[in-house]
Design a binder for these strands. Structure first.
Length: 209
DNA sequence: GCTAGTATCTCAATCTTGTC
DNA sequence: GACAAGATTGAGATACTAGC
């Protein structure tokens, strides 16, 4: 008396079991073909190959009637368990992929007020909740120097000149204005030509150095 | 790199069954 | 019996793999 070979372990491939699972779930070769984007012929041949490998009929097809044999029930149960296990692994793999963690050093100017900036930080945190930001407030020139030393991953500053080794992207368009007191001769005056201002006594500050 | 074998697919023809 | 829907079969194409 010979032992029954391990047909499921040794001979079956996942592709055939997968097709078989869909056939049973859909209750029709035709519907399975539509679901799997294959032809009816391919489905029929796959089922035939699976039955040949197992050595037994799995599905009784007599016209409109469609039902599983005892062996078919067992194979279907096996295919569902394998499918469930693979789905679990798939989920774990996706979780691993999204579990980026660590700390990003972010160098910024003081008083950045921008909905885009806020949204950027918010979206990043939603996507990578395990990533922390270490935010340091510095001058633009210092930010650029540290970026060139590859210390932070990201810097936000004001740059009048761009360095060839850094990549720049506009984050915010800010407006600057002149302010003067009501005692000043410029108060309420409108200027269209900035050159006129250069000859006057003004308090100036440099924003990027 | 070439060749043979295998697996899997599509296409077209044919068969089977149910419905009118 | 005619027709439609679903299933099967055979031929051929393509992709992959192992052996040389």
């Amino acid at each position: 008396m010979g032992m029954r070979p391990n047909v499921l372990l040794d001979k079956c491939n996942w592709s055939l079991l997968r097709i078989f699972r869909v056939i049973v779930q859909e209750g029709s070769l035709n519907k399975a073909a539509i679901k799997l984007f294959l032809t009816q012929s391919a489905i029929s041949q796959s089922l035939k190959r699976l039955e040949e490998q197992i050595g037994e009929t799995l599905i009784i097809r007599t016209g409109g009637k469609f039902y599983l044999t005892a062996t078919g029930e067992i194979v279907f149960e096996a295919s569902m368990m394998i499918y469930s296990q693979l789905m679990d692994y798939e989920e774990r793999l996706n979780t691993e992929k999204n579990s980026l963690s660590g700390t990003i050093k972010l160098l910024v100017l003081s008083r950045i007020e921008s909905t885009r900036y806020d949204q950027l930080l918010h979206d990043f945190h939603q996507k990578y909740p395990l990533v922390d930001f270490q935010v340091d407030v510095l001058k633009s020139k210092e930010i650029q120097q540290l970026l060139l030393q590859k210390i932070p991953a990201l810097g936000i500053g004001i740059n009048q000149s761009q360095h060839s080794k850094l990549k720049y992207q506009t984050l915010i368009n800010q407006k600057y204005a002149l302010f003067c007191s009501d005692k000043h001769s410029l108060y309420t005056k409108m200027f269209k030509v900035l050159n006129k201002l250069k000859v006057m006594d003004l308090f100036l500050f440099r924003v990027s150095n």
